[in-house]
Design a protein around this nucleic acid. Structure first.
Lengths: 242, 242
DNA sequence: GAGTGGTCTAGACCACTGC
DNA sequence: CAGTGGTCTAGACCACTCG
């Protein structure tokens, strides 16, 4: 019997890939509805059940949001419910509070070996670096340093960051067409250096969380590298394990 | 039009609950196969597709593992693949290595206010406390203090812990019939006190991760509360965000 | 070959949304 | 009411495992 192709994948997964292409190419943009299941079934010449299974997977991966009676929408970081998708900071007491992002600096540089490797760009390629503070109820809790591939984030500046209302990923999505879909965080404990201690209003040498994040967009392409330093006296990092 | 019952749930979810009861009651034990989809369909008098959807959800929640051509098995912490389900520590360099658990102490006490609240037992109820170190390649990396409801973990002792080959959750499952299915971790950065510094072979005052974990068994019943202190010089805590 | 999970289809009906 | 996603069914066939 002939061996099936090693790259075989079931029909619903091929359909999924086709829909993903539509997302990646911008055919359907964040916040917009994709065509109905019935319509996609006709377009791809498969049964609605197969389209449904494809979309099921995408919904499970937060690529898409279903709304009964309305349609299926491309997930967006503009959606307030997406705000805490990648932000796991919670105050010790008092419920969820939405932090305020305060941009400090934004400048351009050339990628070093490490940044180039992580962002999958050439060493020496332009990158944009952002420093900002996250404040909860006016108190600084997180100090972020964010490395971005300069080519993609051309027009990014301190002014743009200051003007924009909403999360950084919302900005990236709206202004630069880059939608973040997945991230990996590497967490360590470190001692605050003097400059950081000042920004976070803690004593020099205080223990801080160091949260290194690599964020990926469509096609598993890394599009952001950031390091956050978290003051965890009145907040903590919440992780749910399933 | 009459409003549907507020507790309405679709058929496949009711089937899921029935299967969950079977798991919780021990009708099918960890590592064993549950009946085939066809058999369950007959038993519950629904179509195989409905059973399938119920099991789909359970597989997504890691309650159950499907094996094509063989059957569907109750997930078990004995399975080596489950070892890192709740353990997110990774060495900076060199691939995955399986740590060794070194039990230090095990004693009984009465639950204080906090332990009682978290474990959902009466204040003053018996609890069992375990202290142990996790070593990677012989080096201590994690110091754990584990609080357990004493009633459930009657025969737990330092000897039992020392003898047992395998993870602690594997022990809980095998010897005490308690299967952990979900956990929440609250992570902070703290400074090492003298005793901890000694155990982890770091300097006093070194920054450590404090990882507080509440672990739940069937019915969302808390069955473990632990605090781990992680030395993160040569290891880090890895979290994947989706 | 028998038994299992995995895929795919076609069709019926339900629940929700918005006009 | 039309259009959408959500549920449920019945049946066919495929892929994998094991005796």
């Amino acid at each position: 019997m002939a061996q099936v192709s090693p790259t075989f994948s079931p029909l619903y997964r091929q359909i999924k890939d086709l829909i993903m292409q539509g997302l990646a190419s911008g055919e359907w943009r964040p916040g917009e509805a994709i065509p109905s299941e019935a319509e996609l079934a006709v377009r791809f010449n498969v049964s609605q059940g197969t389209v449904r299974k494809a979309i099921d997977e995408m919904a499970a991966e937060n690529l898409v949001v279903r709304k009964q009676g309305k349609g299926t929408y491309v997930a967006s970081h503009n959606d307030p419910r997406a705000f805490f998708r990648f932000l796991r900071v919670v105050p010790n007491e008092g419920g969820v509070s939405v932090p305020q992002s305060v941009p400090l600096e934004c400048w351009r540089a050339k990628a070093g070996q490490e940044a180039a490797r992580i962002l999958d760009i050439a060493p020496g390629a332009p990158i944009t670096i952002v420093r900002r503070v996250l404040k909860f109820n006016g108190k600084p809790v997180v100090l972020d340093e964010i490395y971005l591939p300069g080519e993609i984030f051309q027009g990014l500046s301190l002014e743009v960051l200051q003007e924009y209302q909403g999360s950084i990923y919302s900005l990236f999505e709206t202004r630069f067409g880059v939608r973040m879909i997945r991230a990996e965080e590497r967490i360590r404990a470190v001692a605050a250096d003097r400059a950081t201690a000042e920004q976070l209003a803690v004593a020099e040498g205080s223990p801080l969380l160091s949260v290194e994040r690599v964020t990926y967009t469509y096609g598993d392409k890394p599009a952001e590298w950031r390091r956050g330093l978290y003051a965890t006296a009145e907040h903590y990092y919440l992780n749910e394990l399933n």
